[in-house]
């Protein structure tokens, strides 16, 4: 099938470029670095506070959440305070300490931060996979063949996604391997979350998988956006700069926006954090998982629609 061969081509080109190996190297370095830092700052069982101490600590924290709840001026702050109190009460009742020894799950939890890094790399690949062909002029030899422009662009988008999945899989699997060797499984606890004051207990591995996937949603959306920008402007720089900036400040900006208007729920970043629906409840009252998924799909379709529209229509004049 032609599309498969085109993807094979894109993959070959990607892995014959030095920059790809630089990215892989930096990611590996990141994984090793967090392991080293955590290794030298491990919480041993002797460091853990006594039952009396942490129960005391949670009671104090609940008082401050209570105050936040009463003074809260927006939906999310209020529901967050309610949920945290519920979790703390659950801990006290069921004797589940919030403190635990360093183990493979705490290490993997930390490495979710690396998904931001993966985001930057996938955005770079998504921005350059089209623009690079234009900059080097190779797009002409690529287009004057029987593959349609749709097929060529599709192969490039799919390759970018596959690259993202590869980086994610490397991070998840390698973190698990390194974590289980260095830190082991001892002292691991369950994961607690609460929505509308209802507490749910989940296994750590399941929740980590969920977190990794949920964190990848914003990477996927920004990659599609970077892909669109680079296809329209045929410039790697604009696409990378804009998308990376949004990757880092997008959710903060949306959080601030959400304080003032409910319309913020239609913005991209109010919906990328799907994890919220499993942990703390929606960002804005009335939002549901289905709503967010629908909004994300609309954005994704728009980004891809404009990418294909511009890629097909334009004359190649380089």
């Amino acid at each position: 099938m032609l599309l498969l061969k085109l993807i094979q081509n894109e993959w070959m080109k990607l892995f014959n470029r030095v920059s790809t190996y630089v990215m892989l190297g930096i990611l590996l370095l990141g994984i090793v670095l967090t392991a080293v830092v955590i290794f030298f700052n491990q919480t041993e069982s002797s460091d853990l506070p006594s039952e009396e101490d942490w129960k005391q600590e949670l009671t104090i924290s609940n008082e401050s959440y209570k105050q936040t709840e009463e003074e809260a001026f927006n939906y999310f702050t209020e529901s967050y305070a309610i949920n945290q109190q519920a979790i703390n009460n659950y801990r006290i009742e069921n004797n589940i300490s919030p403190h635990e020894e360093t183990n493979v799950w705490t290490y993997m939890d930390t490495n979710i931060l690396l998904i931001q890094l993966i985001g930057v790399f996938v955005i770079i690949v998504g921005s350059s996979i089209v623009a690079h062909e234009f900059n080097k002029g190779t797009i002409k030899l690529l287009l004057v063949r029987s593959a349609s422009r749709n097929q060529i662009l599709a192969s490039k988008f799919i390759t970018t996604l596959l690259f993202g999945i590869l980086l994610l899989a490397i991070t998840f699997v390698l973190s698990f391997i390194i974590g289980s060797i260095l830190f082991g499984f001892d002292g691991s606890s369950v994961h607690l979350s609460a929505i509308d004051g209802e507490v749910t207990e989940r296994s750590r591995i399941l929740f980590l998988g969920l977190s990794y996937l949920a964190s990848s949603v914003s990477v996927l959306m920004l990659t599609a956006m970077a892909f669109m920008i680079s296809t329209i402007f045929r410039s790697e720089t604009i696409a990378i700069a804009l998308s990376v900036m949004l990757l880092f400040i997008g959710s903060t900006a949306t959080g601030i926006l959400a304080l003032f208007t409910d319309w913020a729920k239609y913005s991209l970043f109010a919906n990328t954090n799907l994890e919220l629906y499993f942990t703390d409840g929606p960002l804005i009252e009335g939002m549901t998982l289905g709503f967010s998924v629908a909004v994300l799909i609309v954005y994704l379709i728009l980004f891809l629609f404009f990418s294909f529209l511009f890629f097909k229509k334009r004359d190649v004049s380089i």
Binding site: R17, K136, K140, L141, V144
Partner: peptide, 14 residues
């Protein structure tokens, strides 16, 4: 058709 348009721009890193 087999074509070269302007310069033969092949992938330099391949």
């Amino acid at each position: 058709i087999g074509a070269i348009v302007e310069n033969p721009e092949l992938y330099p890193y391949l």
